[in-house]
Design a protein around this nucleic acid. Structure first.
Lengths: 336, 336
DNA sequence: CTGAAAGCGCTTACAG
DNA sequence: CTGAAAGCGCTTACAG
């Protein structure tokens, strides 16, 4: 039913070999023949069968996007969309298509990462939202499938990653609070199953150290990046350590949870407590007071992830790609 | 390099025919042979080549998701993620994979809908976020590719759609305001390029009519579903018609824009003006005052879209599938 | 219950 | 510059 190169060959009075070569831009076809074939192909409304081509070339021109916990309101949720848009943009020029896989810990046990990719013959994959304890992590450490991770530091022969400079970003956010005069700075961090949590903690410590402020372990709490997490952590943190005048958060969602908790406790932001977030999600500029936070360029993260994956597929060496961030100052932190 | 049924056949001492049949569960293979072949396949870590299979069966077990304007902060942005999660859930059981296409008006001119789908041999597609003026709309009206639209009413031989009952939902929202005592109710509607805008307008009118409140055209403004849109529309609407005591919005984003505009104008919500939104995005419950709005079950929209697409692919008749909505009462509208 | 053979639509050495 | 032929990994009548 669909028209094939065989049909074209018949109409043109040439062999399928010649049709194939003409359409694929090989040099060893006379211009005249090529033009004739092209015209016929167009008239017949021919579209090449990518499946058939894929079978012989063993290339599918497809990459996978492996996402964990797509709609759980966790760490990656708020900017998944922008990362995705970036990925699509990065794939566009090379005309790679994207096939979406969603996984959770159980599905990872059921189907290995290699199998997931091989079943669909993707040439490589971008992986996002995995926890360090997820089964795929170990697999990816030794896979030969070109892979780019987002926010998970694994670097091998075939695996690279993109991320913000989380250490530096947390350093800047904390330093900013110190510059405003704060000395007792709490840190509501993400969960311990995310690489970024450790990096941000390092940045936080670095800033304290540089300013000769002793690090107090009890000022740091771990939670799950969500609004509820922030809400709960804030309440206990502030209750147990009334000297705290500012709280840095590993996500905007948690910072917003703290807004709510502060309100419930009768505290005003930033008058009674200064708050700084991380991510710069859309909401950050919409709430009152505007949330001071670290902006991650999530579109660029996706874009670079895609570009880098394509280069790994082409045989280039995987890298760690740093995406610039920026401290966005709004009204939720004040000088004391 | 990868192991094929040929390899298995050799090891098992049978023909590839038998291997194929054994692995695919055909009945005409002796149990003993089947078990032996299965075991060998497992030992060899065999995964079938879906490409090769696709070539002969002409089935790819893949559907497309065609999305327009992925990250433009427009109408669909806020709940794209949940729809997507619903789609993935709906596809899971039948093991269909999803390939993501993003389009804009230009790309639609460059590549027809049919070509987009045929190039990748998807068996059908879910389409989301298109404007009524988009080129694909006309194409989809006469396509033979199984298609399910979200929020766009096209029903043909091969095309169905899912949506909320927008007329009824707008009717309920408006009726609620009327019940609270409001008589001068503004309506900040979406743009005229969305089918839902007309449906919601109809519901708004119906509620007025039922309560013998004359419909005033000047109380209705169209904008683009975004926060800025709401902001601007609110300012002019309230300025030109000071008698208005309540405003219904075709999106939460616009309602939130109105929150901001009201604040700028020195008006308090709900004391000076009652506000009702549409969608129930996450933000609606996070802002102060909580936004009274219509909740759309976006996960279900995606889930049903996927299920329905699969049924159309199997030859069943396309339908219009209605997804239940719900008026969520919070604090942004008050009795007068 | 099993196998030989054709064929899905393409690409690519190889030969001329 | 062009074509005949093999082959990618599978499925499926057909025959036995």
């Amino acid at each position: 039913m669909a028209v094939t190169i065989k049909d074209i060959a018949k109409y043109a009075g040439v062999s399928v070999t010649t049709v194939s070569r003409a359409l694929n831009g090989y040099p060893d076809v006379s211009e005249e023949t090529r033009e004739r074939i092209k015209k016929i192909a167009e008239q017949l409304n021919y579209t090449p069968n990518s499946i058939a081509r894929g079978l012989v070339t063993n290339k599918t021109h497809t990459v996978g996007l492996v996402v964990s916990e797509l709609i759980k309101p966790g760490a990656y949720h708020p900017f998944f969309l922008e990362v995705l848009a970036g990925i699509k943009a990065g794939l566009r020029k090379d005309k790679y298509d994207l096939i979406l896989f969603t996984v959770d810990p159980e599905s990872q046990d059921a189907t290995s990462y290699e199998k997931l990719c091989n079943d669909r013959k993707v040439e490589g994959a971008i992986v996002e939202g995995l926890r360090l304890s997820d089964p795929y992590i170990k697999e990816i450490e030794k896979t030969q499938i070109p892979t780019v991770l987002i926010d998970i530091p694994i670097l091998t022969d075939k695996v690279g990653y993109v991320s913000s400079d989380n250490v530096q970003a947390a350093f800047e956010a904390t330093s900013y609070l110190i510059k405003l005069g704060h000395r007792n700075i709490g840190f509501i961090n993400g969960h311990g199953d995310a690489a970024v949590s450790f990096e941000r903690l390092e940045g936080y410590k670095k800033a304290l150290e540089k300013n000769n402020i002793p690090y107090k372990e009890e000022y740091v709490v771990f939670n799950d990046f969500t609004q509820e997490g922030g809400y709960n952590s804030f309440k206990t943190l502030v209750f147990e350590h009334p000297k705290i005048t500012a709280v840095f958060h590993a996500s905007d969602l948690m910072a917003i949870g703290s807004f709510k908790a502060a309100k419930d406790l009768g505290m005003k932001v930033p008058d009674d407590i200064s708050i700084v977030g991380f991510d710069d999600i859309e909401l950050a500029s919409l709430i009152t007071p505007g949330l001071t936070t670290i902006r991650q360029d999530t579109f660029k993260m996706g874009y670079n992830a895609a570009k880098h994956l394509l280069s790994i597929i082409k045989g280039e060496k995987p890298q760690h790609i740093l995406i610039p961030h920026k401290l966005v100052i709004r009204d939720s932190a004040r000088k004391i």
